[in-house]
Design a protein around this nucleic acid. Structure first.
Lengths: 230, 230
DNA sequence: TAATGAAAAGGACATATGTCCAAAAAGGGG
DNA sequence: CCCCTTTTTGGACATATGTCCTTTTCATTA
């Protein structure tokens, strides 16, 4: 994590996402601009959160661990997303581990400061409500779908989620090792292997050691059945 | 649904759940006290919500339909729960069908009124935030567990959820028909039947035509693996 | 280049769950 | 009381997924 001291960039981002409407006289607030490299942990599950983060650039994934070594994928987040909102309101340790998938930029505001100065800011509270209710709605949908979705459905959705919109077709996706994917999807590497094999046979994807290439984007979309990790 | 014109009871409930701290001079607000019979639909999925409801007595279940005739159980709610909060914030049709499980009492406040008069009430907004974040947290947990829980786990949890705390032991649970339970749990009646058969063989439950009796509460708890529908 | 260890692939078999269907049981109305 | 419908129960078999291993592939380094 690196602190970016660039008040021009900060201002830009605040404007772009209309945060200046929520925080009047934003110059007076202790905002910090933080950057994270791809793969870096932004919030560690179980730790205490200290900042509310507005994700303004990049993509993060939220995971949650179940047993030693296993971490389940909850969702991907894109700008403008709020990180740490639940912890801010519920005063509890970090519930889901947040990891940068690509290089990320966040605007941070300390919890302390918020408790002291923003809890009467109705624009801020209303904005929080919007974010929380959006999350609630999407996770309700995905919880429902999760119950009925097969590993094939989930893998398809996962691949679509990590593909870059715009050049999905034939994109090489860096996938790390298959065990990790299996954990994220809540299955075993053995079974994931079977499913990957099937999709490869059907000509929908192509797998090399560390990458997966999507060959048939439409078909994959169909298989994902509307389940989205983002 | 019946409107209860009993300002004393209304006052009682407002005090009991400390809503008078959120709504100062509560006497001046257009609160309505509504009662619903067991089994009655409180919010119909897809319709427009008009009131924010505070559940102050009884128990409700939230379900969501997937295909014609199938409705999946999302959760049970107890007082003090908020109904319609997501719809209030997101301005959308009702997302999950709410049905009274037992006789229920709700305090209702019209959306119109809220939009005009309460969106600057920080106590109200903060309370909404607490409720929403609580829901978000619990559904995140259950979404995670859902992915990994077997039908046996879910049935156990379901039975515990509908048993009345206090006299769980040997309680007869009115269960309606098995197909409905199967739908709620997201499985088939054939498989549910198998699972019920197993649990009966193990002496954990006892089933007659319309009721299920819990014989071994502890064992059932163990099987439910911490998955809770409430 | 050969040795070695990690990750991937996959065989064999078990369990969980779904599909399709038929038989049995329970109610309900004539 | 009997016929008819609905619900329950469960057989037979298929598919999805998990478990346990062994083999294969790949990368790395001695």
């Amino acid at each position: 994590m690196q602190i970016i001291r660039d008040s021009l960039l900060l201002r830009d981002k605040l404007m772009k996402y209309e945060l200046h409407k929520i925080f009047e006289q934003y110059e007076q607030r202790p905002f910090k601009l933080l950057s994270y490299e791809a793969g870096e942990t932004i919030l560690r599950e179980g730790a205490e959160a200290e900042y509310l983060l507005y994700l303004v650039e990049g993509r993060v994934k939220a995971t949650s661990s179940i047993e030693t070594g296993k971490s389940l994928l909850l969702r991907f987040n894109h700008p403008l997303a709020l990180i740490g909102d639940l912890e801010l309101i519920r005063h509890m340790p970090i519930q889901s581990q947040i990891t940068a998938v690509t290089e990320c930029l966040c605007i941070a505001l300390p919890f302390d400061y918020i408790y002291k100065n923003e809890m009467e800011n109705t624009a801020f509270l209303q904005d929080l409500l919007k974010h929380l209710s959006y999350k609630l709605q999407t996770i309700t949908t995905s919880s429902r779908v999760n119950l009925l979705a097969s590993v094939e459905n989930r893998l398809a959705s996962f691949l679509l989620s990590i593909s870059t919109p715009g050049n999905e077709f034939g994109t090489e996706l860096q996938t790390g090792n298959t065990r990790e994917i299996a954990d994220l999807l809540g299955t075993t590497h053995r079974h994931l292997n079977r499913v990957i094999h099937d999709l490869t046979e059907k000509g929908i994807i192509e797998k090399t050691r560390h990458t997966i290439r999507i060959l048939n984007y439409e078909k994959l979309k169909e298989i994902s059945q509307g389940l989205r990790y983002e």
